[in-house]
Design a protein around this nucleic acid. Structure first.
Lengths: 206, 206
DNA sequence: GGCTATAGTGTTACTAGTACGTCTACCTGA
DNA sequence: TCAGGTAGACGTACTAGTAACACTATAGCC
């Protein structure tokens, strides 16, 4: 039912829907299997279209990779915005921590798509890396804002620590114990924020 | 000169030296360019041997990948042991933090080879992932021991946080600001240890 | 010295599959 | 009409891995 419907949808609504179907399949496969080891042919087969159709929507595979990461970045920005909505900084961090914790426990969780992509694309000038960098800058700025709102002495330093914890939590959720992520991350967030209120201990040292 | 000498060395001392040369080249290329995008041919060319010689030392490319990671794991275990030598737990964490900070600043730093490898190998039963898991378990145990020696209330929880921070620091050193890693990591280590002494704040919550 | 065994490497050519991307030609529904 | 679809062969390059056969340096032995 669903399959048929979305296929008809693809025909009726034309290009935009097909593009979305390609992106859906790409997101699933790239994330699950890695980018380099997911061939364009594999995606094409999975969507059930032809090579020509695929290459009419995305001129190269890299262009699709970029689109995949950009869509994911937009989604994450929304999730962070939602976690912050109507909360103070500490509550927002708690919400972010439990969001990451929940994601870690979902079947098929494979860590952060951006970290994973960067592992596969060493060239810092590559379009894929530019998307990764841009999303990481945005995330870092969000943490910077939260650190400042939490009233720590050295907000940039604490923002770096919050970012570190986020990254580490994504890795731990993938390669470690997913069940423990939410609590450990929330506790660590709190710990660095609190240490940030006592400049001698958590911030810079001699 | 060097080339000639090591080539003669390879002949005189037989297989072990050639195997090492293959491993050296593989380590450099796998780490710098990623594993999947480094072909066996590329390694073979870089070492200056033939396909046949290569496959006489490593039956498959995966076998080489495993050997690469195992050698790297041994090196890291040595580095951690050295950081702990003659220090108490907190000093050891400081030494580990500055070690990671220094590594981050070295040109060509591309993060943690194990995290990167895991990004490219989704199958948890794959030999590569088994090496990754085994090394991560060892690292976690080392942190657990340090947390216990630091006298925190809930050592397993704090060990998870230390591990998170280590992973995040490796990512930050690659994709963020390498200069800031050492200090941020040392501060965060301290923060979670200190919070671990006040069970209500850093540990479990309601 | 001369013989042989052995281990390691070299050369060349090969299989067979996969990768990305292009090409021509035709179909369909608004 | 025409955008967007189908079908699938094709080009070119790379991928991992194998087969058959020749060469060389060392070591032990008569």
């Amino acid at each position: 039912m669903d399959l048929e419907e979305s296929s008809q949808d693809g025909r009726r609504r034309g290009g935009a829907a097909t593009r979305e179907r390609i992106l859906d399949a790409a997101a699933e496969l790239f994330y699950a299997a890695g980018i380099r080891s997911t061939s364009a042919d594999r995606i094409i087969e999975s969507v059930g279209i032809t090579k020509v159709t695929f290459y009419r929507h995305f001129r190269t595979k890299d262009e699709l990779v970029v689109a995949y990461l950009e869509r994911r970045a937009a989604w994450e920005r929304g999730a962070v915005a939602q976690a912050r909505e109507g909360h103070d900084a500490v509550e927002a961090l708690r919400a972010i921590a439990s969001g990451i914790g929940e994601a870690s426990c979902r079947p098929g969780f494979r860590g952060c798509p951006f970290i994973n992509a960067a592992a596969e694309y060493p060239d810092t000038e590559h379009p894929v890396r530019l998307v990764v960098d841009s999303h990481r800058r945005w995330t870092h700025d969000a943490f910077l804002d939260l650190a400042a709102k939490a009233g720590v002495a050295d907000a940039p330093a604490v923002a770096g620590q919050l970012m570190m914890l986020r990254d580490g939590a994504m890795v731990s959720g993938y390669l470690g114990d997913p069940e423990a992520v939410a609590e450990a991350l929330a506790g660590a967030y709190l710990a660095v924020i609190q240490a940030g209120h006592r400049p001698d201990e958590g911030g810079r040292r001699g």
